[in-house]
Structures are given as structure tokens and as C-alpha cells.
Nucleic acid binder design. Structure first.
Lengths: 215, 215
DNA sequence: GTATTACTGAACGAAAGCGTACAATAAAAA
DNA sequence: TTTTTATTGTACGCTTTCGTTCAGTAATAC
């Protein structure tokens, strides 16, 4: 219920920054503590806004959470564009390496950890929303990577029949056991050099397994 | 505060089954709803026990959760023994395949999904507990698999220098993107044939990448 | 039987969150 | 200026949970 879309011609104008601050605060708290535990008061406090304003802008907690999800989805969506623009005019190894670093760095983020931990449970209750989150999130990443691999396959650098499958394989290689370690808060996994080593090894193993026989 | 250890010589004896039922109920509720949201009343109700009995057996929710974790850890620990006993006298492919099926089937379980989703956040706050959970859980699985791979390497089936690294690689191959799909509740990922296909491909890619040059 | 302990149901006070109501103030248009 | 709307702080009634208390009942040892 973002009423900022219809500007009123009379009276004190709505402070659009406030609506934004509320969503930001809510998302941050949802991520760290989970939806059900976070109170509307704490959201209002975190946003530096009266609780009444929160209720004036969003009908209730469920709707606020939905808005948060929408915002996060569009943020992720725009962030994915990076890969498409940067994949040009580089060697395959370089391209994959950079992709892997970007992906694994993101997955080591507080937001990503908390999201696939605490918040995904909420999405499990609404499969439709979960599906669209998959499509703009991990699914989109998979497709982006698959495109890169497919192109490389056509150029003869590697031999791949199912590029989506190959993309999943490579992401799996990058991940290894890091998802468990990140979930458990074992923070060694978040250091740049650990990520670097993990990605490097992943690309190498991948290229070894999918190497073109005659190269 | 399991007082069953010191049997009283007089008065009505403590019903040990009740303490167990309480932990079971609590664990089930914790898994599906998260620790903070579950009330002690609901635990008592689920266990078919008075709330007073819950408080008589466990001091508070935090301690009850700790007991749950201990119980789960010992359960996992005993379950891991399976792999050690069954790895003998089979071909490498068969051994790995069976290991992968067991692992991925477990990870597709409601308990596993909920645990690494909802409950791991609790563990993140107590790194020591998280570390010991890692050691009996994923870490132990990794070591078990590494042992198998190490043996196979000594027998000349494959070429591996770091068996722990290789074990992580293989598990990563098995997982692929399934952790995200499972977290989001995309249930296609839990079908036996999907798991079968995923494990099969993982083993194949792994053996291809780590194949002994002269074989 | 009695003594002792376990367990139950009901109720309590305290605290916290929800969503709302109200009076007061702030910021804009007319 | 007046009018209109946004925002605030406080407070409200309602619900839920926590952890405890109490009286009554159940199960065992003596």
C-alpha cells in the first residue's frame, strides 16, 4: 500500500523517504531475527518513525514483509545484470573465475546467509512467491552461467551438452560445503582468500571434467 | 536438568518417558516453527503433559533447546556409523553412489531443511556449539567420504592428493543448487529419481575429473 | 494404612506485541 | 491566513506468553 504513487494536491505531503526507511529497517530486522519475532515497534524505532506512521504506510506486518520481498527481488534482479555486461571479451577461465568470486562473495553476505536461513521458511509457505524468487535469484544466476558455458562450448573451449546442468555443476563445485559452514556461522568461510581458493579450485576441476578432448 | 539419573527411594517415581516425550515434541516444534516462536504451552500440549511438568523437568526454553541439540547430535553421530560399516567390499562407483544417495536423501528431509534453515541461526550465536555440531555433522560426513576416497586413491582407482578437499568437491557436485531449492520449498528436488540422477551425475563428473591418467 | 514425591489443571501477575484512537503539531496548498 | 493532510507521542483494550503458585490427585515406598 505504497500511497506515494498518487500525489495529493493539498495538505502536508507524504514523506516518501520514510516509507523507504521503514522497509529498510524491517528488512534488516527480518533478516537478523526472523519475521515473527520482530515487533512493529522495533521496526518503527529502527526506522526512526512513529509506529502509527508504519501502520499508516503499510497495513500490517505480512504486507510489510511482502513489500520487503518485492524490493529485495528487484535489487537482486538489477544486480544480476552485472554478469551479462562483464562476460564479454575475456578468456573463459577469467570469466568463470570472476563469476564465481562474485557469486560466492554474495553468498557469504550476512543478508544471503540470513535469507536462506531464517526467511526462506516464510517463502516455503507460499510456493508461488518462492518460485518467483527462485527465478530472479538462483535460477537466474544458473541461466546466466549457463549462457557463458554454452557460448564457450560453441567456441570449442569445452564440451557441454546440457549447459544448465553444467552450470549447476560448477556452482556446486564452488559451494562445496560452504553453505553448511556459513549456516553454522563458521566465519573462516567468508575470508576473501578462502573464497578465492575455493573458486579457483572449482573452475579448475570443472574445466578438467569438461575439457575438450582435443585441446 | 534430567533428574532421572538419581532415582528417588521414596515417593512417586519420575516418569522418564515424559521427559523424552517433551524433548521430542519440543524438537519437532522447534524445527517447524523456530525456537523463539514456540511457546512452552504448545510444547506441553504436543507432549501430552502439563506445563508444570515441563518446567519441573527443564529449567527453561533455552535449556530445553540445548538438550534437544545434544540429543540430535548423538542421533546424527550414531547414524554416521552406517557409512563406515557399508563401505567395505564394493566397487568405488557403487560405494560413492550409495554414500551420495544416503546423504542427499537425508538433506532432503524436513528435519535437515528446517535445521539448516530455522535453527542454525540459533547456533550462530554460540560458535562453540556450532563448531561441535559441524564436527559430528557435515564435518564427520566429509571425513568419512575422504576416507573412502583416500583408500581408493591408494588402490590406484583415482588420483587424489588432498582427500578432504576431494570429499568436499564431491559433496558439492551432489548438492549443486539443491540447497537453494530445498530452502525455498521447491519439492521436485526431493523425489527419489531426481536425487538418483543428481548423485549419478555427480559421481560421474567426479570420477572424470579425478580419473587416474593410466586407466 | 501413612509418608513422600510426581503430576495435573487452573489461575495468577508481569511483560510484550498487536492494531487502534486521540489530541497535538508540522508541512504543504489554497 | 485557513484548509488539508502527515506525523508524532501517548495511551488504550486485547491477546499471548512466561514462569510461578496452589490445591488436588496419582503412584510409589514404608
Amino acid at each position: 500500500m505504497n500511497k506515494a504513487a498518487e500525489p495529493h494536491r493539498v495538505g502536508r505531503p507524504r514523506d516518501v523517504a520514510k516509507a523507504e526507511r521503514i522497509v529498510e529497517a524491517a528488512w534488516e530486522l527480518f533478516l537478523t531475527h526472523g519475521v515473527e519475532v520482530v515487533s512493529m515497534e522495533s521496526i518503527a524505532r529502527q526506522a526512526g518513525v512513529s509506529k502509527v506512521t508504519v501502520y499508516a504506510t503499510y497495513t500490517d506486518k505480512a504486507q510489510l514483509f511482502a513489500v520487503c520481498l518485492q524490493r529485495e527481488m528487484s535489487r537482486i534482479e538489477s544486480a544480476q545484470g552485472i554478469y551479462e555486461r562483464q562476460a564479454e571479451h575475456q578468456g573463459l577461465y577469467e570469466t568463470l573465475h570472476r563469476f564465481g568470486i562474485g557469486l560466492m562473495t554474495f553468498l557469504a553476505t550476512d543478508s544471503a546467509i540470513s535469507f536462506y536461513g531464517t526467511l526462506a521458511a516464510e517463502l516455503r509457505r507460499s510456493p508461488l512467491l518462492a518460485k518467483s524468487f527462485w527465478d530472479v535469484g538462483p535460477g537466474k544466476t544458473q541461466r546466466n552461467l549457463a549462457d557463458i558455458l554454452s557460448r564457450a562450448s560453441h567456441q570449442g573451449d569445452i564440451t557441454i551438452d546440457d549447459s544448465l546442468e553444467a552450470a549447476e555443476t560448477l556452482i556446486g563445485l564452488w559451494q562445496g560445503l560452504s553453505n553448511f559452514q556459513l549456516a553454522l556461522g563458521i566465519d573462516r568461510e567468508r575470508d576473501d582468500d578462502v573464497i578465492e581458493a575455493r573458486v579457483k579450485r572449482g573452475v579448475e576441476v570443472f574445466l578438467r571434467a569438461y575439457a575438450n578432448p582435443q585441446s
